Amino acid sequence: MALTFRSRIEHASAPWVERLNAVPRAVSLAVLIALLAVGVLAPSPWSGVAFAVVAAFVAWLLFLTWQRLTLPERLLRVAVLTLVLAVTVVELAPS
């Protein structure tokens, strides 16, 4: 029996989620804050790359948790992802 796309992604993500859970929350938060600081303070191409990494991480977490979230939680997470993607596009687009 073939696995669905969602099942394959969840299965492939399981080791990464376990590693992420093993890392102290303060370290994870520090890495996220560092990426956002690079996104805010670095020159244009590097800031866009930092925001793109944050957007990819948020999208991955949103995909993994989508079925367990309530409607308000989904809307808030989609709004955050949209905001990060918009900033990424603005930073990467040539002026």
Results as ranks from 00 to 15, higher is better:
V87C: 10
E18L: 06
W60M: 15
L29G: 05
R25Y: 08
L61M: 06
P43Y: 03
V90R: 14
L69D: 11
A59M: 12
W46P: 00
F57E: 04
A56S: 14
A56T: 11
V17L: 11
F5V: 07
E73C: 08
P24G: 05
A93N: 12
A55C: 02
W60D: 07
T65R: 14
E18D: 08
A26L: 05
S13Y: 10
L92H: 09
V80P: 03
A12H: 06
A55K: 01
F63L: 15
R25P: 07
T88M: 09
W16Y: 15
V78K: 04
L32I: 14
W60P: 04
V84G: 09
S47F: 01
R19M: 09
A22K: 03
S7W: 09
A26I: 03
P94Q: 13
A30P: 07
G39H: 02
F51C: 01
P94I: 13
I9M: 15
V89E: 08
R6V: 15
P15C: 07
T82C: 09
L85P: 00
E73W: 08
V84C: 07
S95H: 13
L69G: 02
S44Q: 14
P45M: 01
P94C: 09
A34L: 06
W46Q: 10
L35C: 09
L3R: 10
V78M: 11
L83P: 00
A37L: 15
P15M: 02
L41M: 14
S47E: 00
V38H: 01
A30E: 02
G39Y: 00
P45E: 01
V80I: 13
F51M: 12
V23W: 02
L62R: 10
A79N: 05
V38Q: 00
L64G: 10
F57S: 11
S13K: 08
V90Q: 12
P15S: 02
M1I: 10
A37W: 08
A86F: 07
R68N: 07
A93V: 13
L71M: 04
T4L: 05
E10S: 09
A37N: 03
P15F: 05
L20V: 04
A50Y: 06
R8E: 06
L61G: 02
V84N: 09
A30V: 01
A42F: 00
I9N: 07
S7A: 15
H11S: 14
R8G: 04
V40H: 09
L64A: 12
V53Y: 05
P15W: 05
L69Y: 10
A34G: 06
A22T: 08
V53N: 01
E91T: 13
T65L: 13
V80T: 11
V17A: 08
E73I: 09
V27I: 15
W46A: 09
